[in-house]
Design a binder for these strands. Structure first.
Lengths: 222, 222
DNA sequence: GCGATATAACCTTTCGGTAATTTACCGCTT
DNA sequence: AAGCGGTAAATTACCGAAAGGTTATATCGC
């Protein structure tokens, strides 16, 4: 056995039993299903270790498959990373959109941050590491990857822009750089909380939501 | 020429002129001076790209020497990284200590965060990337490096502990986990601001300090 | 010449990526 | 019902480049 191709499935489900709903002339796991599995494993590995430190063999091993499968479904390591970016960005933006539109009543300006946080915690509960795929500082400076990550972060920042600008202009501050910096601090705060949650896996989404409510009020009325 | 040993100095100072204050029987640059140069270059490279993506050859090339020099002064890549951790942690802790002890008058609780930020901006003005050596998320989970980084971050957190705990208990909140999370958010905020400053190299330390003052008041009286 | 500084050239491992081959399921024909 | 070929899914075994690390050698000031 090649040492770069990790051994038999440590994680895969179908060792003896066989398929149910595949297309004509097929064995193994159907394409769409495998694609999801690979994407989930890649999000975990890339989020945990960063692009450079994550290895294709490790991702394959997590799925219970060998490397060539990854290249059959996604063209390259960078291609897989791009797919991860798209996936997590879509998920994050959907969560924020939903939180801002607010189910029954749209949250007012003051409690909007808490609604967004709760939405993100809910959406990423089982994928906490994936958040950091968007915020990997180790991507090569000129690379397509970094540009793509920047683009997606920009889309997310756009949703935060109205909130931060409103907060500042409420204090007579119209400096666009101030608003930009505050956006950056806000997404950084989300990163901090996600990182802290990873270090405390036993805490539920509800616990995190309540905790953030306490922290936000404490900070605001300092 | 070996492609892994980068060519002649793209950055080093002494092409023609020779030394002045070296020890007995020496050519080139004296040991202590080279050590500083290497450390500075390593802080920059590690901070920019992370541990995994930074290469020893690139660090050597930045100094204007070849790889074996790095191994002569520091034993290994990890050894060099550990030295970087010590260096930047010492610098950061000194800056925070000084800001908290406050020159003429110790800053009150409310403006302490701003004093700390200003101290950090001043201390890291010419080494902005170095901050991220302490906060590299891509370090291997079980490694000595990650433990060392955690240890140093813990020392820094210790300085923030009194402030965050005081803020929360002022609101009747004595939950130790809340205090821990708030510490994490605080250091994350510093990271965010340092990252934003890197993206805006033209801004002075004073500008950043004033900007943060504005942001802090805006946040607090939301 | 002696010792400190420095380098060229090399070794080894890891990892992204690929070509050739195999396995197993399906439907169609006999 | 038995067999047969087609096709999707998957694996084994390999290549080449990049990077960490080492050895043996050269240079320069005292």
């Amino acid at each position: 056995m090649d040492s770069t191709s990790t051994g038999t499935a440590p994680n895969a489900s179908p060792p003896p039993g066989r398929r149910r709903g595949g297309a004509a002339g097929t064995k193994g796991v159907p394409r769409a299903e495998r694609e999801e599995q690979i994407l989930a494993a890649a999000l975990e590995e890339f989020g945990r270790h960063g692009h450079a430190s994550a290895s294709m063999a490790a991702i394959a091993g997590r799925v219970g498959v060998t490397k060539p499968m990854l290249y059959a479904y996604f063209d390259s390591k960078d291609g897989l990373y791009l797919a991860c970016l798209e996936h997590i960005a879509t998920r994050v933006i959907a969560a924020i959109d939903e939180a801002m539109a607010g189910g029954p009543a749209a949250p007012a300006g003051e409690q909007l941050p808490h609604a967004v946080l709760t939405g993100l915690f809910t959406a990423l509960e089982d994928r906490r590491h994936a958040w950091f795929v968007l915020y990997d500082r180790t991507l090569a400076p000129g690379s397509e990857l970094r540009l793509a990550a920047q683009r997606h972060r920009g889309a997310i920042d756009g949703l935060a822009a109205s909130g931060t600008a409103a907060l500042l202009s409420g204090h007579g501050n119209e400096d666009p750089l101030d608003a930009d910096a505050l956006k950056h601090v806000w997404t950084g705060t989300v990163s901090s909380l996600m990182g802290w949650w990873i270090a405390h896996p036993e805490l539920s989404t509800e616990d995190m939501s309540a905790r953030c409510a306490r922290l936000l009020t404490a900070i605001r009325t300092a």
